[in-house]
């Protein structure tokens, strides 16, 4: 077996705030192989974005990546590199596509200049060559009249166009890995599919691996070979995509699937997972999902579940792996009861 392109091992990113230590990412391990598209799903606040920022060491104080974490990329530990070395990786070997194309572009520079900047920094291109490269990239991401568009400012472009520009910036150096942090959340539904298709098509052609962060399981189903489900700063389930939809193991994943609208399924209203993610400054001991879980029993309160091997390439952080018979007896979760008594 060849070494994976990216391998994260027990990554812990903590934020030292006045309200206490927020353990936003708390021991996450994952890997991305060459040419693969891996999905990371979970609710807001589960640590997906912080994981993404940690990979490129973009965490600012009061945030800190704790000792003992390792992020190996192309056989080098990014966490042991100097700032200068990491700079050479960012935008060059690994690049990022952000959620908000409205704000991910600098309002005071033309989009051409912003794409050219990447080429100038990493390839040492001359101004003229970089400008030509920018036009070429705009053409690649399907922007009509790229010569004119290159001279326009972000506010002159539509949201979809802007996201195309952001993708162009990410692909200038033909990186080995693109981290896409909810790349379509801020876009119109009609544009979302186009942008994802574009990203998938370009990365397939260039052989780029993608770490696709999203909360949309539909996107995962369509584009990812493997999927990692995160909850409360941890990986709670990891499997191949087809396995997730046919045989989800973790109750949280079940909940996510149940909350997904589906054409052809008649339901009065969409299912929801009761309660909210606990604050990262105070993860509960034991299972972090137990208050919202319809199967939780006393063991979940005492014992923090490890990642159990369910199948080949399928792990789940749930004690049900050892006591599967309990799945037959669901009960209203604690959070739902609390909600009901409060109302």
């Amino acid at each position: 077996m060849t070494a994976p392109l990216l391998e994260i091992e027990s990554l812990r990113t903590y934020f030292y705030t006045d309200a206490g230590v927020a353990r936003a990412v708390d021991g996450v391990s994952l890997r991305v192989d060459a040419g693969e598209t891996v999905g990371v799903v979970g609710e807001s606040g589960c640590g997906k974005s912080v994981t993404a920022l940690s990979i490129l060491r973009l965490i600012l104080p009061p945030g800190r990546i704790e000792a003992g974490s390792a992020i190996r990329f192309e056989d080098k530990n990014l966490l042991e590199m100097t700032e200068r070395e990491v700079q050479r990786v960012r935008g060059n070997r690994i690049s990022m596509v952000f959620q908000e194309p409205m704000t991910a572009l600098n309002p005071v520079f033309t989009v051409g200049d912003q794409i050219a900047e990447v080429a100038r920094i990493h390839a040492g291109m001359s101004k003229r060559d970089a400008a030509a490269k920018a036009v070429e990239m705009l053409k690649l991401v399907g922007i009509p009249a790229p010569e004119q568009r290159a001279n326009e400012y972000p506010h002159q472009l539509s949201g979809g166009m802007r996201q195309r520009v952001v993708i162009a910036m990410a692909l200038v150096m033909n990186p080995a890995l693109v981290i896409a942090d909810e790349p379509t959340t801020a876009l119109d539904v009609t544009i979302q599919a186009q942008i994802l298709e574009l990203l998938a098509d370009l990365t397939r052609r260039l052989g780029t691996s993608v770490l696709l962060i999203t909360h949309d399981l539909g996107v995962v189903a369509e584009h990812c070979t493997r999927v990692i489900v995160m909850y409360a700063g941890e990986v709670v389930e990891e499997t191949i995509t087809t396995g997730l939809f046919s045989a989800a193991h973790h109750p949280y994943t079940e909940g996510l699937l149940g909350a997904m609208p589906r054409i052809g399924r008649h339901a009065e209203r969409l299912a929801t997972i009761p309660g909210t993610v606990p604050p990262p400054t105070a993860w509960p001991v034991g299972c972090r999902f137990r208050d919202r879980c319809q199967y939780a029993w006393d063991r979940c309160e005492r014992e923090h579940p490890p990642l159990y091997q369910i199948d080949v390439a399928h792990v789940s952080r749930c004690h049900l792996a050892e006591e599967p018979e309990r799945r037959a007896h669901p009960h209203p979760p604690l959070a739902a009861e609390r909600g009901a008594s409060a109302a």
Binding site: M96, F98, T103, N106, P107, E117, V118, H122
Partner: peptide
């Protein structure tokens, strides 16, 4: 501005710190 998306984006693209400050933060 330090936490503005385009500043984080510039850093994520490997723009050196002094250049992020001069090109992306200062004009704004």
């Amino acid at each position: 501005m330090r936490d503005a998306d385009f500043v984080v984006a510039a850093r994520a693209l490997g723009v050196p710190a002094w250049r992020v400050l001069g090109q992306h933060v200062l004009p704004n």
